Simulated assay, not measured.
Amino acid sequence: MSDLDDQKDEVTGTLRLSAPYSAGPFFLDELVARFAAAYPAADVELIYDDKKVDLLTSGIDAAIRSNTLLGPDTHAVAVGPELSMVIVASQDYLAAKGIPKEPRDILDHDAICYAFGVGGQHAPWGFIGPDGPFTMQPKPRLVANDMRSLLHYARHGLGLAYVYAEIAAPYVANDGLVSVLDKHLSSLPKYSLNYRSKRNMTRRLRAFVDMAKEGKIIH
């Protein structure tokens, strides 16, 4: 038996992960599938949830998040793709309310915003200006924690929605949505894979972290 086979045999037990819904189609489903195929003696439990996770008490081995919220004795590594953003609206909405020309114009529009859980925290809208990246927080008319819902509301002419470009692309191409302020938008940081101290790290978590760092995700 080779050294690689020996290593695979040692990766056992259940790897428990927490992640936001958006991470699955972007990269995480492919990463988990690769991990499960590479380490057949290990099981995986993946729970999609946008809430902050206490890695000390939750029983979760690692949390994947689009915004890093680190607790004490916690590490994070960047994983997944760059997160390009887009602001979209229906043609009818823009005809009625006008097309925003500058980032500050969004403050005069109906905003369809993404919410992190039930705590009332809304995702800020990120832009690039002469002095670098900055964010704005428009007053939301509609709030949801699923970007598919945000796109649905935008398609019905209810306002501007700030969403991932990859998710919005089919709707912009085929379903009447229009993107605005493209040249002013900044990309978000990559997702982060958050886990507790390297001390006493299980072999399955170490194997998953190493695979995530490789970044070899097939789309």
Rank of each mutant, 00 (worst) to 15 (best):
residue 163 V to D: 01
residue 200 N to V: 12
residue 197 S to F: 03
residue 199 R to E: 15
residue 147 M to N: 07
residue 45 E to H: 11
residue 129 G to D: 08
residue 40 P to G: 05
residue 136 M to W: 00
residue 170 P to K: 03
residue 24 G to P: 01
residue 133 P to T: 06
residue 173 A to K: 11
residue 41 A to S: 14
residue 218 I to C: 13
residue 12 T to F: 11
residue 171 Y to Q: 05
residue 35 F to W: 01
residue 92 D to P: 09
residue 131 D to R: 11
residue 206 R to K: 14
residue 67 N to M: 13
residue 59 G to S: 05
residue 26 F to L: 13
residue 184 H to K: 07
residue 50 D to S: 15
residue 31 L to S: 04
residue 141 R to I: 04
residue 93 Y to Q: 02
residue 5 D to W: 12
residue 128 I to S: 08
residue 185 L to S: 03
residue 133 P to I: 03
residue 138 P to Y: 03
residue 150 L to E: 01
residue 209 V to H: 02
residue 155 R to L: 13
residue 128 I to F: 08
residue 69 L to K: 10
residue 67 N to E: 13
residue 61 D to C: 07
residue 179 S to L: 06
residue 187 S to G: 09
residue 20 P to G: 03
residue 21 Y to N: 07
residue 201 M to L: 11
residue 99 I to D: 11
residue 201 M to Y: 01
residue 109 H to R: 09
residue 200 N to S: 14
residue 127 F to I: 03
residue 206 R to D: 14
residue 72 P to D: 13
residue 104 R to N: 14
residue 173 A to R: 11
residue 178 V to L: 13
residue 132 G to P: 00
residue 123 A to L: 09
residue 8 K to V: 13
residue 166 E to R: 14
residue 150 L to S: 04
residue 198 K to C: 12
residue 94 L to D: 03
residue 169 A to F: 04
residue 96 A to G: 08
residue 173 A to W: 10
residue 81 P to H: 05
residue 96 A to R: 11
residue 46 L to F: 08
residue 102 E to P: 01
residue 100 P to S: 07
residue 11 V to S: 02
residue 119 G to D: 10
residue 69 L to C: 11
residue 134 F to W: 05
residue 150 L to M: 12
residue 47 I to K: 07
residue 132 G to E: 03
residue 18 S to V: 06
residue 104 R to E: 12
residue 187 S to F: 09
residue 151 L to S: 00
residue 184 H to S: 14
residue 33 A to F: 09
residue 77 V to P: 02
residue 202 T to Q: 11
residue 74 T to L: 10
residue 69 L to V: 12
residue 111 A to V: 02
residue 99 I to G: 09
residue 25 P to V: 05
residue 103 P to S: 13
residue 208 F to D: 00
residue 155 R to A: 14
residue 179 S to K: 08
residue 185 L to A: 05
residue 138 P to S: 06
residue 219 H to G: 13
residue 160 L to R: 03
residue 219 H to C: 08
residue 64 I to S: 00
